[in-house]
Amino acid sequence: MLTKPQYLYQAKLIIDCLPEEEYNSIPKETLKYIEENMQVDTNIKIDPEKDLSEQNVDSQTLLFLNNIIQKVRMNQLSKEYEKDIKDYISEVNSKNAGFEAQVDNINLREDVEKLETQTQKIPKAKELIQEYQKVVSKKEEEIVKLKEECNTLTSMLNKIPKFIRKIFLRNHKVKLLQEKND
């Protein structure tokens, strides 16, 4: 297994064998990193005429090169779709917002319908309350009226001779009325 400086050197040797176009697609910072961290080792050799699979390439070198390939592919992808990206994101955001608005709209409509149903009940409720208030306000008048009637009746009863009154007092209702007024 090679050390880091060694496998970076081996990677450099492999990269130097690439055609110019492919070499230029490698990010400059990656090349700079290799230059700054590699260590020349004359024992490490790469034959540009032979396939890499037939040569003694360290696994760390292959991994490092694979990462470079991924980076290059991503850069190419980014460049390929650079023009489309902004419009695409804008369209996505717009469609998502439209969808959310539709969903909110449906739920709001449902809430409004519920409120309308509840609102329709309000006049009926008002009517009932008004009737109740009427009855409550009349209650006092009714009570005064009843009291007057009761007092009139009591005074009339008091005018009746005692022995006749006793006959009436056998009736419970008359008796109670008398007790309350007492």
Binding site: S78, I89, N93, N96, V103
Partner: peptide, 27 residues
């Protein structure tokens, strides 16, 4: 990878919405 990581969730949401619509799920 395309350096639009901030929009990843929005794109995912959009794809999922369209997938559900294609499956016949109504609004």
């Amino acid at each position: 990878k395309l350096e639009i990581g901030d929009s990843g969730n929005a794109i995912l949401e959009n794809i999922q919405i369209r997938d559900r619509q294609a499956k016949g799920i109504t609004i």
